[in-house]
Simulated scan of single mutants.
Amino acid sequence: MAQPEQRVTPAVPAGHSVDGVAARMRALRASWPATDGVAVFNNVYLTVTEEVGQRIEGRQFPDPRGATTLDVVFAERYLAAVDAVAAGHRPPACWRPLFQYRHHPGVRPLQFALAGINAHIGHDLALAVTDACRLLGCEPAALEGDFHRVGAILERLEERIREDLMPGPDLLEIVDPLTHLIGSWSLERARDAAWSAARILWSLRELPALAEEFTAGMDANAGLVGRYLLTPLH
């Protein structure tokens, strides 16, 4: 019997606290085994969230309120997917592959990390931009600088992830297919597509039926890419 799908529309926590969402991710880290594929992504995302929080506190974002709002509503979409699964509901299509394959022995940690990033960037990011615009009463252009600053942090982190999670020489038999698999996905291209999608969604805000159709297509596409990234290698 199919599980009911829960529409994920996260509420912004009081105070728009980056520390609050980071604390939630730390609690999840403590509750999941390190081998859990969702835990692998959670650890990556926690690192990003902590770095963004430090930069906001260090006044490296010209608009701390805008950066904080975008960061929090973005994180809440991932946390809402976690909550949906915990409650027995289906998360958005973009997240389903990661949750379905989270314990698969043939999927490498690097695949889990990139599949989570793909889901979050390929679907959640555009929606987070429009969420933030509504909360702040601004146009997407007002958040473009913060969008790219966070994106730069993600790109630097992705490089470290690829280096740290690539299998060692004892697993050479899967290095070549893994390199081919992860080489087919680009964070930079996904981020550019997310910004374009955010602008389209904002332009459709008075046309909810079209916006919902566009969002559903974006969700399905991210889910398809996620399944590809999680192809078991042995």
Rank of each mutant, 00 (worst) to 15 (best):
G66I: 03
S186R: 09
T130S: 07
A128G: 05
T49A: 13
N118L: 09
P13R: 10
R149M: 10
D36Y: 03
A84L: 07
A34N: 04
L127D: 06
L157V: 10
T49K: 02
A128V: 08
Q100H: 11
I200L: 15
E57P: 01
R55V: 09
Q100M: 06
D83A: 15
A14F: 07
S196W: 03
R59F: 06
Q111V: 03
R24Y: 04
H89L: 07
Q3F: 07
L70H: 04
P140M: 13
H234G: 11
V12M: 15
D71C: 13
R189M: 12
H148E: 11
L233T: 03
A193W: 00
E159H: 10
E51G: 08
G145S: 08
E57L: 13
D176H: 04
F74S: 10
T231E: 06
P33C: 11
F147V: 02
D63W: 03
A126V: 01
R59Q: 13
Q54D: 12
G151V: 04
S203W: 02
A222Q: 04
L114F: 08
D219A: 10
H16E: 12
D219F: 01
F214G: 07
I56P: 01
G223Q: 07
P177A: 15
E155G: 09
H103L: 04
V82E: 10
D146W: 05
E139M: 05
L157Q: 12
A193E: 12
R162Y: 02
A193S: 12
F214C: 08
G66N: 01
R149C: 00
L165V: 05
P13A: 14
I182P: 00
P92H: 09
I121W: 00
A132C: 09
A141C: 00
S186H: 06
N43L: 09
A93M: 10
P33E: 08
R29K: 12
A93D: 15
N42S: 04
Y78C: 05
E158R: 10
N43Q: 15
A14Q: 13
P109H: 05
L178K: 00
L201R: 10
L136I: 07
R24M: 06
P208G: 15
G217W: 04
C94P: 02
C94A: 15
N43D: 14
L110R: 05
G66R: 06
W185R: 14
H89N: 14
V129E: 07
P169L: 02
V225L: 12
P177H: 09
I200V: 15
P97Y: 05
A197Q: 05
F74H: 13
P33I: 05
R189L: 10
A75M: 07
R7L: 15
Q3S: 14
V48N: 02
T130A: 09
N221D: 11
R134S: 14
C94M: 11
G53F: 02
H16W: 09
A14G: 13
